[in-house]
Amino acid sequence: MFSNRYIIIYSAIMVLVVAAALTVVAVQLRPAQQYNQRVEKMQSILASAHIESTVKNAEDLYNKYITTAFVINEAGDKEANANAFETDLSKENSKAVAERHLPVFVCINDSGSLYYILPMRGKGLWGPIWGYMAFSSDLKIIVGAMFDHKGETPGLGAEIDTDKFEDQFIGKSIFNEQGEFVSVKVVKGGAPDGDTHAVDAISGGTITSKGLEDMIRDGLSPYQNFFQQIRDSVSSQNTSEE
C-alpha cells in the first residue's frame, strides 16, 4: 500500500513536472501564436476594403494598402502615443466613452480611392463578435464590411461572417439626409427595399443580429466628432474647388 506521505509527495512532484513542461511549451510557441493573431487581424482589415490576402502575403499587403493608422479620442483629436493596430477593443469598450482610444485605419486601394476603416466589437449570443467597416473618403457610403465571431451558432448566427451577409452593407449609409448619425439597422424579416440604413437580419439568428446592430451603433457613435471633421474638410474642399 502507498502511505499518505507517498501520495502527497507523488502529487506534488507530478504537478511541478507538468507545470514546468507546460510553461516551456507555452513560452516556446508564444511568438508563433501572436504572429498568427496579427496576420488574422491584418487579413480582416484588408478584407473589409475588399483586398484579398493569404496568410503569406497579408503583412506585405497590409503595409502596402494601409497607408496610415492612427488613434483618436472621442473629441476627434489624435492620440499621439497610441498604436492603432495594437489597440485592444475589448479593453477600450469597458472604458468610459470619453477615455476610449478609437483606432482609424486609412486604406488607399489600387484605383487610388481612400477608405476609412473602423473596427468594432460587441456581443453575440454565445460570445464576442467583431468586425471592420470601410467607408468612402467622404463617409457617405459604406464600401465594405467584414464580421467575425468567436462561436455563434453554425448555420444561424455564424452566418454573419459570410459574404452574402457582409455584402448587404455595401452602399448603405450611417447618416440620414440631414447628416445625422443613424447607424445601420439589422431588420428581422427583411429590410424594406431602397432603405439605405437597414440590412436583412439572419433568420434564426435574432440575438446575433441584434448584437451586431448594437455593435455597429455603439462602435461608431464615439467617432461622431471625427466624422464631422472629415465631412467639414470634404465640404470645404468642394467649395474651394467651386
Partner: peptide, 20 residues
Amino acid sequence: VVIAALVIIVDQVLKAYVYD
C-alpha cells in the same frame, strides 16, 4: 493530469502552426 497536460500541449501547437 496527464491527459490534460497533453491536450494543452496539442492545443498550443495547433494555435501556433495551424491557426485557422
